[in-house]
Amino acid sequence: MGLLHKKTLGEKVFDFCNYSLLILVTLICLYPMLYVLFSSISEPVQLMKFRGLLYKPLGFSLKGYEVLLYNPNIPIGYFNTIFYVVIGTALNLLVTMLGAYALSRSGYKLKKLFTIAIVFTMYFSGGMIPSFLLVRNIGLINTRWALIFPTLIGTWNMIVMRTVFAAVPKSLEESAKMDGANDFIVLFKIFVPVSKATIAVMLLFYAVGHWNSWFNAMIYLRDRQLWPLQLFMREIIIANTMIGNETGAVLGDAGEGFFYLEEVIKYATIIVSTVPILCIYPFIQKYFTKGVMLGSLKG
């Protein structure tokens, strides 16, 4: 803190405690993930017998990952998840931008009504059952669109983006309109380029949302060919029904005594499904603060 001064004893004790606690917090955040990683590459039998905390892998074996190769659900899930993330996020962004732009303009009559009607949905909803019945009645059930249309707009995101758009200098819009540009051109040629950072944040939020979502898939999709990765993950690591499924059958005799692989398979599945998102993590980290601060803007 600016001036050099000798730390008092109290301050030294404080610093010591502060750093120790922070190291502890870091360890608690990190360790479960390390544990999963170590377990996933451990010798399956040793792992099954082991009790307690791991500091390194027990032996070395890629058995868990090998078995996963035989599980057709993983590539199916990956393909579907990528579809939902890419198509879903693209549509999310497009419609969110249209709405945010329209709500950030002023002068037209129904603006206030629309704004109130939209904000109201953040605080009140018909609930899970009417939404389910609606999706069923309009025939979206058991189609990919059931994971895309019902979550087309994140209202909070749109309101935040509206606030950002409203702060774009008027002169930019006016000079473009003088040149005969209509609102679509103004939005995509001027507002989008100057709000790139905000849009990147929205992209991140929507994409992570699609990547993580499982509940809608669970209630809307009966066809396993359409399932996203998270739903297969739930089956493997939570419902625990992988044994005796396709994998067991594929392995045939090798599937004998398959149960001892159960644990490594779970851990390997977690790693396989989580690594991609953690790999892009360093690249998106710079947007975190921006993203969270955007959320605190008041509309």
């Binding site: 419609v95 949905t121 009140f124 909803s125 018909g126 609930g127 009417p130 609606l134």
Partner: peptide
């Protein structure tokens, strides 16, 4: 979007 996925379910409630 808001009519179909928010207001109709509110009525449907």
């Amino acid at each position: 979007y808001y009519i179909i996925f928010h207001y109709i379910p509110m009525g449907g409630a």
